[in-house]
């Protein structure tokens, strides 16, 4: 009776069914992302009052922090999917892991760029060798390594499995890097900058931030579904269901 959940999950793992499922959900996810994003932007850019310390410059927080959060969250999803892909050899898990990597890299890149655009007026420098910034940079390299390794194999599934292994090594590495850079900073006694802005945020600033976080989550799902669909088509290009799609789309 309670059997339908594993059964449903099992069915979802089959490429044609996931393809249709993702195709149905994707527009909704995108709509949620755009709607929530618009609300968050209005709240953050227009409604929220200027900060008493940073005046209007703090408004970068509404994209910077959600992006930073997503960069870590997507790495976590990628590592979990990689683990599933390696242990149970589920094709869909490989696709999810490998198609998460470019999205995660995009968010990491956004985090680094918006962070330095925020850092320049606030700390007077584009870049500082702080533990968080350095870890984020290392995260970008990890993403790029996973993407590069995936694409360097001729066989896609083999590449996915190798890159999944690298992703798992990487997730062990991130906390180590964070810890070691922290230690390194105490050794060098460099310019100590407080990264965390106001420790207590007023509600006017908090709700756009949380809304934006939800919007980025939905965006990730929408983008992941789109990418996974393309990847499944490419992987299964010999199968009948893909041929049917190819022929149907040629009609108009």
């Amino acid at each position: 009776m309670a059997n339908w959940i594993p059964l449903w999950l099992h069915k979802l793992g089959s490429p044609p069914i996931f393809y249709r499922f993702a195709g149905l959900l994707r527009p909704w996810m995108l709509a949620f992302a755009v709607l929530l994003g618009a609300v968050a932007l209005y709240g953050g850019l227009v409604l929220a009052p200027p900060d008493y310390q940073q005046s209007d410059a703090y408004r970068i927080i509404f994209i910077h922090v959600p992006s930073a959060w997503m960069s870590l969250f997507i790495y976590g999803v990628m590592a979990i999917a990689s683990f599933i892909a390696l242990v149970w050899r589920i094709k869909l898990a490989e696709v999810v892991a490998m198609e998460s990597a470019p999205i995660g890299a995009a968010f990491t890149f956004i985090t680094l760029v918006t962070g330095s655009l925020w850092g320049k007026p606030m700390w007077g420098t584009w870049w500082t060798w702080d533990a968080r910034l350095t870890s984020e940079l290392v995260l970008l390299f990890l993403y790029l390594g996973v993407i590069g390794l995936y694409h360097s194999f001729e066989d896609r599934r083999q590449g996915a499995r190798a890159a999944a292994f690298l992703a798992i090594i990487g997730i062990i590495n991130v906390p180590i890097v964070h810890f070691s850079v922290n230690w390194w900073n105490t050794l060098h006694q460099g310019s100590t900058i407080r990264i965390l802005g106001p420790s207590k945020m007023s509600g006017d600033m908090l709700w756009p931030l949380l809304t934006m976080m939800a919007a980025t989550k939905f965006y990730y799902l929408a983008s992941l579904f789109g990418r996974a669909r393309v990847d499944l088509l490419a992987m299964e290009s010999g199968k009948d269901w893909v041929r049917k799609i190819a022929e149907d789309e040629a009609a108009p």
Binding site: V138, F141, L144, G145, L149, S152, F153, Q158, S180
Partner: peptide, 26 residues
């Protein structure tokens, strides 16, 4: 991990960099 691929030394450097950051630091 790169044993089955076409040779690319640059990829190896990209993959090694995150791992060797703590080693170099300490």
């Amino acid at each position: 991990l790169t044993a089955g691929t076409r040779r690319s030394g640059m990829l190896l450097a990209l993959m090694l960099l995150p791992l060797c950051v703590p080693v170099v630091i300490f």
